[in-house]
Design a protein around this nucleic acid. Structure first.
Lengths: 243, 243
DNA sequence: GTTACTTTGTGCGTAGCTTCACAAAGGTAC
DNA sequence: GTACCTTTGTGAAGCTACGCACAAAGTAAC
């Protein structure tokens, strides 16, 4: 079953509705830019220097008209009759996404998930740098991970300020997530990636994106059930027609 | 900054566009049902037996009109002047999502992320059961995790069939993901939750949802950059007006 | 039974996203 | 320079989703 990417499904951003979009680039487009960037990097690795919207769209798994409209929001970077220069487009999308500068990321909660995140290579690859690891458990504090000692959450505010952390990843148990969010926001952080299964309450001006495993599974279960229902339904109809 | 949940951001589902929706329930609604379910469970734990759309909407972080419209797609389960019965609504949403039956889930790839997923309690809580763990690395095969031995991916097809696995979680490196997807689909699986940073190519009838850490970070970086730009812009304007 | 109050369910206007289809623009060959 | 080919960028139409605002429907009090 193929469906167009659905922007608000699992990774969600909340925003004051009045403030419609960012620099005129629709949210739906922004959400797809990372996808294009990854596809372009794949092409670049294979030594391809130019790509048509059609080919890039296939690589990214989207409709080519949508791709062209998305890219047109960044500017007119294609050449008619030819396509897009891969390297140039990589640069333009990176710049638009803010990946030409380094973002210091802190991970709060070094359980199984926090460890996985810290070790995730592609995550630190370009544009992002793990600048701090925090945990509330004294047994974990001091442990070294990706060349960095886990620090106690007591020092959260200080470290965030001193190391210029601008994005915080919350990988704590659900019960601790809101408190962590409150503290990092008070320390000046305005971008949070939340893995804890809770709805975070944050003031205007703070972006929260949520990644939620059980939500994803439940959505899959819904569709799976529907497929099963449909089959049962069809066979019942077949039987009815037999009778 | 608050914005309405954006369906296609990170957790994405692809579907054949022609087949518009499932049983008349819009995708956007389906994506929010797990959210409502979690909020309702929280209320139930606190002993609350009845809730108004307004209160539930606050708990779930959505607009109350949207909540009512979402619930109206399931049926007329509220009582005017009173609200919704918490337990009854939990049951109805669970049923709609297919959580009244148990789904056997297999996790492929027992690296850091796979371990985190296997250990994630809420994940297995209701409706889902980890039925198998696979890895291609002989050093990992045989290791016990959540009371279950990691098996070699050689046995993928057999195990999936024998244990009735219907949902597969792919937590392998990017390079292996497509191959794993091909094999489990050939074995009859039609629901995949993909954590590998690649666009999976799947036939019609197969649902893929994607969770992508770097995509989420990049979207946050975009907004973070915009906030920074805006501040610079304002101060520049202030200076210009001073001059 | 009647009145007043509360809360659901939904019609409707609006906004945003997607897709089609094509004109405009650049490249190539001669 | 001209004719032809390819591919972009976008106007316009259709579709989906959101949120207001209100009628319908239930409760509660007397």
């Amino acid at each position: 079953m193929h469906r167009p990417p659905v922007p608000w499904s699992s990774g969600q951003v909340t925003r004051r509705p009045s403030q419609a979009r960012d620099r005129g680039i629709p949210d739906a487009t922004v959400a797809r830019l990372p996808l294009y960037l990854r596809a372009l990097n794949g092409l670049a690795e294979r030594g391809i220097s130019t790509v048509s919207s059609e080919d890039l769209a296939v690589a990214a798994g989207v409709n080519s008209a949508k791709l062209r409209k998305d890219l047109s929001h960044l500017g007119s970077y294609g050449t008619r009759g030819v396509g897009y220069d891969v390297q140039y487009l990589i640069y333009q999308i990176s710049r638009e996404l803010g990946l030409t500068q380094d973002w210091a990321v802190a991970i709060v909660g070094v359980g199984n998930l926090g460890r996985a995140l810290a070790n995730y290579g592609g995550f630190v690859s370009r544009g992002f740098r793990v600048a701090a690891l925090f945990d509330a458990d004294p047994a974990v504090v001091g442990e070294r991970l990706v060349g960095m000692a886990v620090e106690h959450t007591d020092g959260l505010e200080n470290v965030i300020e001193n190391r210029g952390v601008s994005i915080v990843v919350i990988a704590t148990p659900a019960a601790a997530a809101q408190q962590v969010a409150d503290r990092v926001i008070a320390a000046g952080v305005t971008s949070i990636l939340n893995f804890a299964p809770v709805v975070l309450n944050v003031p205007d001006g703070v972006d929260v994106r949520k990644v939620d495993l059980s939500t994803e599974l439940q959505i899959l279960a819904f569709h799976e059930q529907r497929k099963a229902d449909r089959e049962t339904g069809s066979s019942m109809m077949a039987e009815a027609m037999d009778a």
